[in-house]
Write a protein that binds this DNA or RNA. Structure first.
Length: 298
DNA sequence: CCTCTATGGCGAA
DNA sequence: TCGCCCTAGAGGC
């Protein structure tokens, strides 16, 4: 689940349940035990996200830095009657202490994360400093991303996933935003026009904001659903995406066969007709083509 | 029941 | 460039 919208939502939920509360901190699995001991009985001040990074702030300028990676999850249960025994490999558990808060008892379990570290303000600033602008942050400057994109010969599908260029976009938003703007994933960053970038950024702000509210990624415009287009709905189509994980299915807009390939180690999906190659003869090849030196191989 | 894949990125080589 | 993290859902049998 974790692209930027997931972490923003998580920060909001953790803040709502734990901000201002004294918490019991533990590591049932054991891999965070030393740090959990340090934090146990402390007060949570709040939680915030930047890109795919999450920071839970405790008193004394201490932060738990979490990165969910591909398979991590952080489940927040607010206002529960009872706190159950941990199930599975729970690396970090937060439980509210005391009963004088109108929010009642809450707990949260972290599993499978790639990163869970206790850090200070300097380290937090360092981590934030490595991230490009996050479309979910109102103070983000899309010009910083444009500066890097417009000066790079790397593929736009590569640049969009580079957290130093742009923070919070993952494999789904990358494929979908490129489709929505009819841009081929392999098009070099330095061939984009600034108007295209401004439109993509504005779109990401809206799409990811919607993702925070709904808790899922849904990028298909109402006029392009199979129903609206008069196409029969498919049982093997999960819905909500134009091209992501729709290999060999018909494009929702033009009916062409959606294609897939690999770009910097991740699967990329696109429509060969809606997203024509920048130079018409450059990339019209089979999905099994060999990688370039940069790892692009649709 | 088992096997495969995944919205990510670190660190060892 | 690859293994890992070791979850969770989907699909095959």
């Amino acid at each position: 689940m974790p692209e930027g919208h997931t972490l923003r939502r998580l920060a909001d939920d953790l803040g709502a349940a734990f901000a201002g509360r004294v918490v019991r901190v533990s590591s049932p699995q054991g891999r965070f035990s030393a740090d959990a001991e340090q934090l146990d009985g402390s007060r949570v001040l709040g939680a915030d996200s930047a890109g795919k990074h999450l920071f839970v702030e405790f008193d004394g300028e201490r932060f738990v830095h979490v990165h969910l990676g591909l398979i991590g999850s952080f489940d927040v249960h607010a206002g529960v009657e009872h706190v159950p025994d941990p199930v599975g490999q729970v690396r970090l558990r937060l439980v509210t202490a005391g009963s004088d808060d109108p929010r009642g008892t809450s707990y949260a379990d972290l599993r499978g994360a790639i990163l869970c570290d206790l850090v200070g303000p300097a380290r937090r600033t360092e981590i934030l400093g490595r991230l490009g602008p996050d479309p979910l942050r109102p103070d983000a400057d899309p010009g910083l991303a444009w500066r890097r994109i417009s000066r790079s010969h790397r593929a736009i599908g590569d640049l969009l996933m580079d957290q130093k260029v742009l923070a919070g976009v993952g494999n789904v938003y990358r494929a979908e935003v490129l489709f929505r703007h009819r841009i081929h994933p392999l098009r070099p960053g330095n061939t984009l026009r600034i108007g295209q970038w401004r439109a993509m950024w504005a779109d990401l702000v809206e799409l990811m904001g919607e993702g925070v509210r709904s808790g899922r990624i849904d990028t298909v415009r109402p006029e392009h659903t199979p129903e609206a287009m008069g196409r029969p709905p498919r049982k093997d189509d999960h819905g909500g995406d134009y091209v992501y994980r729709r290999t060999a299915m018909p494009c929702l807009v033009c009916g062409s066969t959606v294609r897939t390939g690999e770009l910097v180690g991740r699967n990329i999906f696109w429509c060969p007709r809606c997203q024509p190659t920048f130079r018409s003869r450059a990339v019209e090849s089979s999905p099994k083509d060999t990688a370039t030196s940069r790892g692009a191989r649709p």
